[in-house]
Amino acid sequence: MEILLETVSLLLVGAGAFFFAVGTLGLVRLPDLFCRLHALTKADNLGLGLVIAGLLPWAADPFLALKLVLIWLLVMLSGATGSYLIAKRALRGDGEDLLE
């Protein structure tokens, strides 16, 4: 039972680290701002979600687990809002000091 739990947790954390690595690669390599925004949100939502899902079985008490899920929801919310703001100002083209 313990072994099974450890294997599942290892797989989930490994998948999360993989998504973070791919997101960083996309942020560094992709050609323009909107493509990079796309890569960034994948790393934000999926990577952090998988890492937290892998950590959940090891939480000592239910409140810590609840806090982890809350952190994930907060990151999704703030990531979506921030990406929207950046994309809106970039699309409108009047962000004279945002885009130099």
Partner: peptide
């Protein structure tokens, strides 16, 4: 552009959350 840099800072923040939890 500054927007690109801010996206980099955002990614550092999110990855930092994962590192802190681990």
């Amino acid at each position: 552009t500054p927007a690109d840099r801010m996206m980099g800072v955002q990614l550092i923040g999110t990855t930092g959350i994962a590192v802190l939890l681990l």
